[in-house]
Each structure stands twice: as structure tokens, then as C-alpha cells.
Design a protein around this nucleic acid. Structure first.
Lengths: 110, 110
DNA sequence: GTATAATATCTTGTTATGCAAGATAATTTG
DNA sequence: CAAATTATCTTGCATAACAAGATATTATAC
């Protein structure tokens, strides 16, 4: 999947996944690939900066967890503001996709 | 509509509009807004560079027309290669949108 | 007839963000 | 102990949409 198409959608995807439950970054990379049926891939070098942006905006909140065995993990949960943002982003996505489809369907169908 | 979401879709939109018929840049700006039901807007400062990229790639071909009255217009038509590219871009868009929707629907629906 | 608006194309610089490529560190496995 | 795996983080690059202008012709208003 080309890079440019993804732009502006990763925050929506992240908030959607974090609304279901708390997750840590490395886990999210796999969740995106799985949840999209292998069609969408996001690198960790992409993911972490997005999480920081969301954190700065107050849409997610982190929590370190150091298990008895294993590498420390930084879990993120969605905040109340994050849920509101998710509603906005999803509406924006639906409207955008509808706009593109409107052009494709009206013109291509002739 | 936010800027980032549009990225990667404008070439698809342009080729779709040009597949229907020859058009000139200034006309396309209005056609996009109308064809999307007012949901999608593209500035002329965005449009022209996209047309040049498409022309360089051989996907569209320009033709100047100087009418008896009025400002000269540069009409673009889609080429055979452009039609192939359009098929690719549309498939890519459909798959991408399906990937996003798969994540939204599976997670949001619980 | 001159000024203003509308039509139309084009250019420059800014900005945002996804990603490659690495660095770091702990843990597990061979 | 060496190598692979898990996990987070950083730097620099590339791309493309846009704002803000420049330019030029034609149409309209005064």
C-alpha cells in the first residue's frame, strides 16, 4: 500500500484500536496488519511518533509496565478527549471516502 | 476536509475526471467540488503541479486552445497508459479504503 | 477609455508526516 | 557466550498539498 494514501489515517486507526483496549506500541504494529487483513502495514518508526503526538494532544495516556520477565512495555489507553477525537476523525474519514467514491462512481459508470 | 487525507488521491480523481472527457485545469477545480457534492476541494496551486506530474509520466497529454474570445486554455486528455494507471489507482484506493473500514468496523462494533 | 473583476495558468516556499535506517537495551534461545 | 527476539526511541529524507503570490487576457463597470 502506497505511503501517501495512509497519511492522515494512522491517528484514526490508532485511536480505534486503543478504544477497544489498552495496547503497547509493538503490539499495535501487529494489530494493524491483522485487523486490516494484511492490507495495511505501519512501521514502528512511524507508530511511536504518532503516539507521542496523540499523547501531547491529550488523546491517549501512557503507562509503563515492567513485567517480572520480559522487556518493559509502554501501554497506551484512550482518554475521554481521545474518544471525542475518534468520533470526529471517523466522521471525517467516512465523508472523505464518500467524496472520493462519489467521483469514481459518477464518472466511471458512464 | 483535512489536507493529509487527500494525499495520494488527487491523481486518481484527476484521471477519473479526464477519462470522461477532455478538460482544462481551471475547469477541473470546479468539477472536483461539484462531483464530490461539495465535500472535496482542490486548489489550483495544487492541481497544476499534479497535471505536470501526470504529463511527465505519460498519463495525460495537453493541448492548447486559443478561442476567438477568452483566455487560452490548456486541455488535458487521458492517454492509454493513463487509463491503465487509473485502473491501478482505483484498485489501490478500493483496497486501502477496505483496509481502513475493516479496522473501524471490527473494533468499533464491539 | 480606464479601472476593476473574472478567467486562466504558473511558481516559490512552507509544512506535515510516513518511513528507512539506525541506536539502545533487556530477555530468550541455541 | 553469541545470536535472535522483543521493545522503545531518534534522525534525516522524501513527498505532496497548499498559501500566497505573479502573470496575462478578456469582460464588465463607471
Amino acid at each position: 500500500m502506497k505511503r501517501e494514501l495512509k497519511r492522515g489515517t494512522i491517528e484514526l486507526v490508532l485511536l480505534t484500536l486503543l478504544e477497544e483496549r489498552e495496547r503497547y506500541g509493538y503490539e499495535i504494529v501487529a494489530a494493524i496488519e491483522e485487523g486490516s487483513g494484511g492490507r495495511l502495514e505501519v512501521r514502528d518508526g512511524t507508530l511511536y511518533p504518532v503516539l507521542y503526538r496523540l499523547e501531547e494532544s491529550g488523546f491517549v495516556a501512557p503507562r509503563w509496565e515492567t513485567p517480572e520477565r520480559g522487556v518493559p512495555r509502554k501501554y497506551y489507553r484512550i482518554t475521554a478527549e481521545g474518544k471525542e477525537e475518534l468520533v470526529r476523525l471517523e466522521a471525517e474519514w467516512r465523508e472523505f471516502a464518500a467524496a472520493i467514491d462519489a467521483i469514481l462512481d459518477s464518472e466511471g459508470g458512464q
